[in-house]
Design a protein around this nucleic acid. Sequence first.
DNA 1: GCCAACGTTGGC
DNA 2: GCCAACGTTGGC
Length: 156
Amino acid sequence: MANKQSALSPASTGFWLLKSEPDVFSWDDLVSRGDQGEPWTGVRNYQARNFMRAMRLGDRCFFYHSNEGLAVVGLCKVIALAHPDPDDTTGKWECVDVRAIAPVPKPVTLAAVKANPKLAAMRLVTSFRLSVQPVTKAEWAEVGRMGGLDAKTLME
DNA sequence: GCCAACGTTGGC
DNA sequence: GCCAACGTTGGC
């Protein structure tokens, strides 16, 4: 079981969580991009960048609305590996491309995550400032269950 | 290479 | 809008 993650060697679990302020780029915006998806630009944190480098094609991500909403609202998937962030002039930063898979029928709020003892170790709770973070398979299943997603959609 | 100052994120 | 957490910068 590879659910113990070191910050320095972010081995891919295949499950992630991406934060976005809905004012800037919302779940609806990602849905509107369709199959083309969207490059996840603007990440300016080394740990978050390293997690993106560890992502593989087909890895699944929760889409979390920060600042407003404060909830997991959708599922998306990685459709392009880490590549230079086109918005970055320093050459240091990278992004992956993701596209929407399905909305979360009952958005899972941060409060609900915090209230669930099974999710006490989730980075959303323990390292809340990290905008790209790994999710364990158990956390993926639990948040999915809380959100009213069936197992098939969760593993799509 | 330490650490204080500063900037940013994001919940409240 | 405040402020806690924490990452980054830069002086020494």
